[in-house]
Design a protein around this nucleic acid. Structure first.
Lengths: 188, 188
DNA sequence: CGTCAATTGTACCGATCGGTACAATGCAAA
DNA sequence: TTTGCATTGTACCGATCGGTACAATTGACG
């Protein structure tokens, strides 16, 4: 028996491992152990080793948010795109039981390896949300502050709901953040 | 030349290293390298090895917050204690350039080693802040929500300001959180 | 069927991991 | 000054680290 993968199949598996163990904690042996994928395959798909694996995972995550969240925020009806963002975020992070890999990498020295990608992920998120708010009639200055508050709030909810092991607090916090954003949209 | 330490001198040095490198990233060799403290001393003070070092650091952090933040929130004038909390948080986290070790440990599998301590740190923070808000005349239900929002917001600000490498965004976010808390105190 | 590149399992590498053993050194009290 | 214990530096341990080499196997295509 010999399962045959391609690179695109491997990336989501790696993502889950990096999420749970962090960059340093995700050792090659734990990766092969949890995925059943041998070193031969891994280094075939990612000749750059662990660093390339993590980079591929980050690019995959970034691409998903770009397609599912940022683009709609920039392009579609502002109200609908913002509603979709909250729904997508709730699903993607599995009500707080799944963490944000980009946020996690930002906290320790791993940041130094990937700082441009990490920064860009958040800059584009905030900017796309800000644009949507402005399109919805929000004041320019208030829009930036509200966008920062929402994105920052999501990261905080992830940390706290995980620390408390409380999915419901994640849902509550996201609901509150959504209300705040809706209020900012109107006041502006 | 042979510098002589005692356990209490070592803990803050370890704290900074765990903060920067995370639990897995903080290897014994990097610890000795950055602190200049040899393995002999480390295992003399912490016979339980790396895990005991991290536990000691967590206990130290927890103790600091208990004394400087939680107790005043429970005991002193509510308004003054809340003001002091924001000032202390801003200082302690060095305007966002220093992360919250407890929050960082909550994100990856390190959480499993220390989950009671991690949970307790946040539970007590939220509860102490909630009590202060209630004493300030805030409605019971609104007080819990406002306390959660503040503590969660701080964690988010740490993640985001570090990802963006932007101290000023940390200050801005904390100012906004403080305003929100002041508003909640009045409305109730 | 045979061909051939893509994929995979296995054995192996030097370096580093967390941890231990113990002798040498420092400091305080007698 | 001598004793005694806390503290420290060094050498060492087996296990695991990330990474490499390469032969065996696979599936797609002629």
């Amino acid at each position: 028996m010999k399962t045959v993968y391609e690179r695109a199949d491997v990336v989501p598996l790696l993502a889950e491992i990096f999420r749970e163990l962090g960059y340093e904690g995700a050792t090659l042996s734990r990766i092969t152990e949890r995925t059943g994928i041998g070193k031969g395959s891994l280094y075939h798909f990612f000749p750059g080793g662990k660093e390339e694996m993590a980079a591929a995972v980050l690019a995959d995550v970034d691409g998903w948010f770009e397609r599912a969240v940022y683009e709609p925020l920039r392009r579609d009806d502002a109200g609908a795109a913002i509603d979709a963002m909250w729904a997508n975020v709730m699903d993607y992070f599995r009500s707080g039981s799944r963490i944000c890999l980009v946020g996690a990498f930002a906290l320790d020295e791993t940041r130094q390896r990937f700082s441009p990608v990490i920064r860009d992920y958040f800059v584009r998120w905030i900017e796309a949300l800000r644009q949507a708010l402005v399109r919805a009639g929000c004041d320019e200055g208030a829009a930036l502050a509200a966008a920062e508050e929402a994105v920052s709030g999501i990261q905080g909810a992830l940390v706290l709901s995980r620390a408390l092991d409380d999915k419901d607090m994640f849902r509550r916090t996201l609901d509150r953040l959504a209300d705040r954003l809706a209020a900012a949209k109107l006041e502006g």
